[in-house]
C-alpha cells in the first residue's frame, strides 16, 4: 500500500512540479520570450522585455471570459483545461534529469497519445466556437495534423524500433547510431508545423482567417490555451533532446545539455519561420507527404537494415 502511495506521490510531483507545471510554465515562457526576442532581432526590431510572456498570461487571467451564445459552456471551458493537463502529463513522462516519476513500459505510446490531445482540443475549440473563422481554422488544424504526424510519429516509432522497447528510459539510453540522426531529421521536419510556425502557420493565419481556432476564447480560458502552447514548446524541444541527444552519466550536465539543445532547436525553427512566407494547406500537405514521407521511409528502412 505504501508503495502505491509513494509512486502516486511521485507522479503527482512530476505532474505538478518538475518537469510539470510549476517549472515547465516558466521554462515555456522563457522559450516563448527567446523566440519572440529572436524574431524581433532578426527583423531588426528591439523585441519584448524578458517577462512579457508572463505579463501576457497574467493580463489574460484578469480579463473577462466571454462565452458566445449557443455554445456548450461545459465543453467550451473544459477544452483549455484538458489541453493544459494533457501536455503537462505528457511532459511528466519525459525522463528529464530529476523527474521523480519512474519510466513505465509502453509509456512512449501514452506520451504520443497525450501529445495528440492538445491538437484535438484546438480542433474542438474551433468547431464549438460557432465562428466561421474558428471552424476553418479547426479544419486546417485537423488536416495539417494528418500531414505532419507522419514524420513525427515515424521518428519516435523508429527510435522505439531501434531501442526495441516502447519505454522512454530505454529510448534515452539507446546506443547512438545512424537511426538517431535520420530520426532526428525526420522529427525536426515535423517540428515547425507542430509548433504552428511559418511556413506552416496555416491554422493560425491571422491574415486569412482572422485568428487561430481559439478565436472566440478570451480571458482565463485563452490564458490556459496560451499556457498549454508554452508547455508544449518545452515538451517538444525536451522530447527532441531526450530522445536524440546522447546522455552523459551526470544528470546535471544532462539537464544543461538538454536545455541548450532545446534552445538551439527553437532557434533553428525560429530562423526558418522568419525567413519564409506561409504556405497553403495543399502545399504543406504535399511537402509533408513527399519529403516527410521520404524521410520517414529512409528512417524506417535504416531501423530494419541493421
Amino acid at each position: 500500500m505504501n508503495a502505491v502511495w509513494s509512486s502516486l506521490g511521485s507522479y503527482l510531483l512530476a505532474f505538478a512540479v518538475w518537469p510539470g507545471l510549476l517549472l515547465a510554465a516558466p521554462l515555456g515562457w522563457l522559450e516563448l520570450w527567446f523566440m519572440r526576442k529572436l524574431v524581433a532581432r532578426l527583423q531588426g526590431r528591439q523585441g519584448p522585455p524578458f517577462f512579457q510572456p508572463f505579463f501576457d498570461f497574467m493580463k489574460l487571467l484578469g480579463k473577462e471570459t466571454v462565452i458566445p451564445r449557443g455554445v456548450n459552456r461545459g465543453i467550451f471551458l473544459a477544452l483549455p483545461v484538458v489541453s493544459v493537463a494533457a501536455v503537462t502529463a505528457a511532459l511528466a513522462i519525459v525522463p528529464l534529469p530529476g523527474n521523480p516519476a519512474p519510466s513505465l513500459p509502453g509509456d512512449v505510446v501514452l506520451l504520443l497519445y497525450l501529445m495528440e490531445v492538445p491538437i484535438l482540443c484546438e480542433v474542438l475549440a474551433g468547431y464549438v466556437s460557432r465562428s466561421i473563422y474558428g471552424q476553418v481554422a479547426a479544419m486546417r488544424e485537423a488536416l495539417l495534423s494528418l500531414a505532419y504526424n507522419l514524420p513525427f510519429l515515424v521518428a519516435i516509432i523508429a527510435m522505439a524500433q531501434e531501442a526495441g522497447s516502447f519505454q522512454m528510459s530505454t529510448l534515452q539510453a539507446a546506443p547512438y547510431g545512424l537511426v538517431h540522426l535520420l530520426a532526428a531529421v525526420t522529427f525536426l521536419l515535423a517540428l515547425p508545423a507542430r509548433m504552428k510556425l511559418n511556413p506552416f502557420s496555416i491554422a493560425n493565419a491571422e491574415h486569412e482567417i482572422v485568428a487561430d481556432s481559439h478565436i472566440e476564447y478570451s480571458g482565463p480560458p485563452l490564458a490556459l490555451f496560451k499556457l498549454s502552447h508554452a508547455v508544449e514548446l518545452v515538451l517538444l524541444t525536451e522530447l527532441f533532446a531526450v530522445v536524440f541527444i546522447p546522455a552523459t552519466p551526470w544528470p546535471l550536465v544532462n539537464l544543461l545539455v538538454y536545455l541548450a539543445a532545446g534552445v538551439a532547436v527553437l532557434g533553428g525553427v525560429t530562423l526558418l519561420a522568419t525567413a519564409t512566407a506561409r504556405l497553403r494547406l495543399t502545399q504543406a500537405f504535399r511537402f509533408y507527404w513527399v519529403w516527410g514521407g521520404l524521410a520517414s521511409a529512409v528512417t524506417l528502412a535504416a531501423t530494419l537494415v541493421r
Binding site: R41, G44, G47
Partner: peptide, 9 residues
C-alpha cells in the same frame, strides 16, 4: 535577417 541580428535594432 542574419545581417539584422548583427546590427542594432
Amino acid at each position: 535577417i542574419l545581417g539584422n541580428l548583427l546590427r542594432p535594432p
